[in-house]
Design a protein around this nucleic acid. Structure first.
Lengths: 330, 330
DNA sequence: GACCTCCAGGAAAGCGGTTTCCAAGTCTGC
DNA sequence: GCAGACTTGGAAACCGCTTTCCTGGAGGTC
């Protein structure tokens, strides 16, 4: 590979001058030499070795993002938001997927630390398992001790800057909206019991119902994905309205109903959470709680990069969007 | 940050020994020293500086993937496949998105080159603009000249190992299947005329119709995304069957029809291409040509990493999947 | 017991840049 | 015309790690 030394030699200047011309510096370089260096670099097809730059400068221009699954539009939207923000800052992005394995998350964080990335974004819901979370926190602490910056999208479990969707509040608001349409018998496709995001949404929904004096919903646990929603739907009893704790599960539930000839919303109303863009054209259109996912990703990056001392936890509230998958009854 | 020297000092050994213990080497280190080093590293929370390792070793364990848009499930699936494959090889992944700007693609490739990534995957359709493609090829050549490996998913435009979906053949097969159902009047929502993937699919479809002695389809150009399909649908004339050159466009077309009260498939049949997983629950279920996207991503990585001399172009054939969005007529 | 081979450990030379510190001009103002 | 203030260019130290080469001691052989 072509090195800076090759360029300097060809241009007949010192290493220092070549570096100053090509890789940005506060120092000025005379027009003549500057031109010579630039021409040499171009002729040779020189590309600075970023590993060397990172080493010499002691700072990298890479940030890391860790998500569970890129093919899940929820994470894709969040990652995209963060990546756009990174691009405007001239930062490169390293993406890791954990496929929901907490060990993978820790391993990836360690690797990003080793890469000396400028900042790390931990995206997605975490399980409330103190052992695993503890190890993650530990790894995070090491990283931060070395000057690394970190932020998190999800719950405030890690003691770092966090962009947290208002899951309880959003679910509660949704519950009130649905109750207003006359529903009284609810079921919640609640996802895994130990997943904080899922649990919060379920709790917020139930609490709101309770406050309204309505009976507690039937709570059905299961996986947090499309197939989880599909499977859980078949266990629903008497409910007239089903709340799936995310949109992807809701779509699974809708598929299950369709197969069984249950009409939505005539026979049962269905609502989700997140407002995934890719699902906007779903039939019937899904009632849901809209989260500004891209903004959240971008905001998380901003928080991570910012030098502020106190840890910031930013609540992002969702907006209930009523669409045809629910109907007024009674 | 903790450096290897800190560890060596604390363990009372030389730098060389510490390196051999912690970062893998062919050389043996005595059990006593080994233990001392490991303990020191652990106590200090040492993480090797990968930038330094990359520099010293002259080889990085990072690969780069360049896609157009992560929130497009097509690219997400491809990227996911490649990332899984990378993970099994112990490689880290750097993802860049171009948002369909060819300049961005070139810029990103340059950056990945500068990072000395082991391999680069260029994913997604390219425009057949000789000027832009030329500059991309040039950049690619520089990268390869320095020992970089590259592969491409899409068309064989760049002179590197390529995993190419059989767009013409798949579209032709789809055309024959649809003709068999009795359709004779077709329209193609053809996407941008200069986008090779779109053009190939459109051409394959048209040619097959021609071979069957059927009239040429109405060809409507527009953007390659959901809104492009939505807009193009309203320009369709007499056709009984509409082929959108990708699934996302097809979904846009379905939305347009739904809004206008046109029933699918009763009034018009609609087909897409790709078989996007997220869209499998769409109503009506979309007839399409299935592409094994994840496998293609993984395979591309494999090709990129392999040392084989001759450039490999691997055709991946799609499979027509008939679903309810088309119906038999006549 | 002398000689040779092996092997663990360390010193030091890179890897490809950045940046500090000097030296030598080049401009000012008088 | 000259002291002093800026500029510009280069030499060399340094970033953190790998790896080659060297040294001294252990183990084996005749």
């Amino acid at each position: 590979m072509v090195t800076l030394e090759d360029v300097a030699k060809q241009a007949g200047v010192s290493l220092a001058t070549a570096s100053r011309v090509l890789n940005g510096s506060t120092r000025q370089v005379g027009a003549a030499l500057r031109a010579r260096v630039e021409r040499a670099a171009d002729e040779l097809g020189y590309r600075a070795n970023i590993a060397a730059q990172t080493l010499a400068r002691g700072a990298s221009n890479v940030i890391g993002i860790v998500v569970h699954d890129l093919t899940d539009p929820y994470f894709a939207a969040l990652a995209d938001g963060a990546m756009r923000a990174a691009a405007t800052e001239g930062l490169l992005v390293m993406v890791g997927t954990t496929h929901r394995d907490p060990e993978q998350e820790i391993a990836y964080l360690a690797t990003l630390h080793a890469q000396r990335v400028r900042a790390v974004l931990l995206v997605g819901s975490r399980v409330a398992d103190a052992r695993v979370t503890g190890r993650l926190r530990e790894e995070l602490a090491r990283y931060q001790a070395g000057g690394g910056r970190a932020a998190c999208v999800g719950q405030d479990l890690l003691g770092v800057d966090t962009v947290a969707p208002a899951n309880r509040e959003g679910a509660a608001e949704l519950a009130r909206s649905l109750a207003e349409l006359g529903h009284t018998k609810f079921a919640v496709l609640a996802g895994p019991p130990h997943l904080v995001t899922a649990a919060d949404r379920c709790a917020g929904f139930s609490e709101a119902l309770d406050e309204l004096g309505l009976p507690a919903p039937q709570v059905i646990h299961g996986p947090f994905d499309r197939d989880g929603g599909y499977a859980a739907a078949s266990q629903v009893g008497e409910a007239t309205c089903v709340f799936a704790v995310n949109d992807v599960m809701a779509v699974g539930a809708l598929a299950a109903y369709r197969e069984r000839g249950v009409r939505v919303p005539e026979d049962v109303s269905v609502a989700g959470f997140d407002d995934i863009v890719t699902l906007r054209d779903h039939v019937p259109a899904l009632t849901t709680v809209r989260l500004p996912l891209k903004d959240m990703g971008a905001r998380a990056l901003e928080l991570a990069l910012n030098e502020e001392e106190p840890v910031v936890v930013e609540k992002v509230s969702g907006e209930v969007v009523l669409r045809e998958s629910v109907r007024r009854i009674g």
